[in-house]
Nucleic acid binder design. Sequence first.
DNA 1: GTCTATACCGAGATAGAC
DNA 2: GTCTATCTCGGTATAGAC
Lengths: 187, 187
Amino acid sequence: MRTAQPDKRTRLIETATKLAYGRGFRETSLADIAEAARVPVGNVYYYFKTKEELAEAVVERRLDEFRAARAEWDRLGSPKERLLAFVGSVHANREQLARGGCPVGGLCSELHKEGGALAKKSATLFTEPIGWLQKQFRAAGHDKDSRELAMHLFSSFQGMAAVAHGANDPKVVVMEVRRLKNWINTL
Amino acid sequence: MRTAQPDKRTRLIETATKLAYGRGFRETSLADIAEAARVPVGNVYYYFKTKEELAEAVVERRLDEFRAARAEWDRLGSPKERLLAFVGSVHANREQLARGGCPVGGLCSELHKEGGALAKKSATLFTEPIGWLQKQFRAAGHDKDSRELAMHLFSSFQGMAAVAHGANDPKVVVMEVRRLKNWINTL
DNA sequence: GTCTATACCGAGATAGAC
DNA sequence: GTCTATCTCGGTATAGAC
């Protein structure tokens, strides 16, 4: 059934993603999610057997968001431009990062502690972007140290998000982004 | 000390700190803490009016841990040595960082989302170390950009901890620490 | 397929005996 | 001061009408 609104399953995932970003997934109750998505509570279980299954869908959704951005970046002419676009998007989202931290970082850290299948799945929130970054560095001619470079870039990103959030100050993102852009340009 | 048996209060805080590090504070029940600390559940409320008050004590304890380390570093002869000692301790704890993330980073991020007084208090987990780092950079002759340098160092630390934890790989710490040591030495 | 009502459990917190 | 027993509430999850 297709209405003007996205279907209920999609609405639940989107709402859960949004609410979990602000409060953490565990702290967000199914009742809250269902209400905000305008779906009766009991009905959630028609779409997801357990809350954990909903968590997996949230991870999947974050991955999709990254993939959509990646698809845009991949259209750019050179690996260096693609790396700069990645860094630029971090800068563009600095206010959000300061308010709620990194959307994938927080989720990854939280679900990692749950253990089990969820821990493994959530790790792809990091490994997939890092893999893409590594590919760009390799394409830019850095064969031997592509992994180190990718890790450094992603680690810097996670760090600035954590500090911007914890100290409630988006300025650290501005400073670090400037540093990273210089660094990329001189590679 | 407000009790006839200070050991229990301390035991509760230490146990809560340890358990919260592994699973997150919110996910750790008072029952679990009390049992592990060998204190009857109901008795917890003699030492802490609410769970939130216990959280504050945990933050205080993490701050004390940092202050103890800082006291050692402050004995070193030069600011540069002190900065290198800070970075060295990160390297020494890399296995732990990969297993459970940064003890202050995770706590800060989690409590920040709770809002209220706890959010403010937890921010000092970041601001106090950053302040100390800034002081070292200033003492090393970097008057104008001491804040930027301190933020960069702390942000790098948070980033490597997040990635080491999320991707389950302590190697990123080794790589980043090497980079930071070179950076400090050429300042 | 969709929704209401509810079971069930574990959490934080309290009362009060000793 | 210390501990046991218990209350209450909110959470996940289920049963079953429609």
